[in-house]
Design a protein around this nucleic acid. Sequence first.
DNA 1: GTCTATAAACAGATAGAC
DNA 2: GTCTATCTGTTTATAGAC
Lengths: 217, 217
Amino acid sequence: MTDDGTKGAERTREALIDAGTDLFGRLGFAGASTREIAGRAGVNIAAIAYHFGGKEGLRLACIEAIGARLGAIVERAGPMPVTPHAAKLRLEAIVRAAVTFMAVEARAQAIAAFLLREITTETGPLIDTVFQRIVEPRHRAVCQLWGLATGTDPESEETRLSVFAMIGQVIYFRIGQPMVLRRMGWDVIDVNAAGRIADLLVRNLRAALAATERDLP
Amino acid sequence: MTDDGTKGAERTREALIDAGTDLFGRLGFAGASTREIAGRAGVNIAAIAYHFGGKEGLRLACIEAIGARLGAIVERAGPMPVTPHAAKLRLEAIVRAAVTFMAVEARAQAIAAFLLREITTETGPLIDTVFQRIVEPRHRAVCQLWGLATGTDPESEETRLSVFAMIGQVIYFRIGQPMVLRRMGWDVIDVNAAGRIADLLVRNLRAALAATERDLP
DNA sequence: GTCTATAAACAGATAGAC
DNA sequence: GTCTATCTGTTTATAGAC
């Protein structure tokens, strides 16, 4: 056992997953070499093949680690609201937490960058894994909240598209962050700036929910 | 001269830029090999070094070609509106055109995919080129429309962030298209589906503009 | 300008000592 | 489990014939 309570082998695996997530996210899967990943993790190159079977195995392990981590966050969010008002508040809290997570937290930047690269990839067998393990469960849960908040079918086409539009607003502040920083004249998105972005997106969320309710028969 | 009025050398350059844009966008810069690009373009591998000085030179040429193409589209849009109502209609038209461009047009998919990969790249000297030549002029023009439509300062922080949020809604239907298709149970986003997406985003746009006006002093 | 042939560097994977 | 050393294939870039 080491200081953090993990055996040597588990430490090696975690270090490789951390380094892999970071470098795959910043350089792309093809652009990150196994030598660089091993060097960043402080382990030997051969450890990648030994522990994960190869570079593709490490990629899959990174996806599964991210899925487990995001799943744990969702579980901490608490039980499903039962009133429309509570559902709206939960949606607003999700937007605020997501903006902060995406834009500020250093640890999350690597995760977000890696995930977004996997999402934008049109090809590759792992895209179904990303969808099934990460995107679909989260999206479906938010659709449930949206349906409850507006009194509409949670699985209607309109609801599913509305949730994607809301997601798009949030994650552009990570995807396009290099462009946002230049246009805003910022060096980083600090907590204050993230708060002002979150205020704006919450206002947009309320407006979109109200527009949905207004269109009801 | 050939059929389309270009000399042989110019044809080679254009074919390489087309193939490079497509493959860089789909596979990433590191993931697309010069052999594959040359093969797709139907030219010899050595032509890349001869015409562009190397792989990085081709990358820069692709960025410049996209900038020129998008600039031409904006010029066709016509003169700046002068009334708030006309500005709102112009914004709605931009959203509809952008959704269709992003989601449907086959030729545009390669351009969008390549551009989005360059935008998300944190490193590399070309990111400033992308911002100055492509993102900044377009964003500033939309901010002008937003300010006119709402009666607010076009360069205020709120306006600039609002425009980024609007952009985020639109481009997620390209960035996250593999996820959107799976969640919606679609094979492609056809013109009808793109129209329904555009309807939703225009409704969100109107709601966001109204919320901005409501907050005025 | 376009081609073939090749150089030089680098990739991921693996065998075997410890 | 971790290391060194090495194998095999692929990469970009280039030299030189045509």
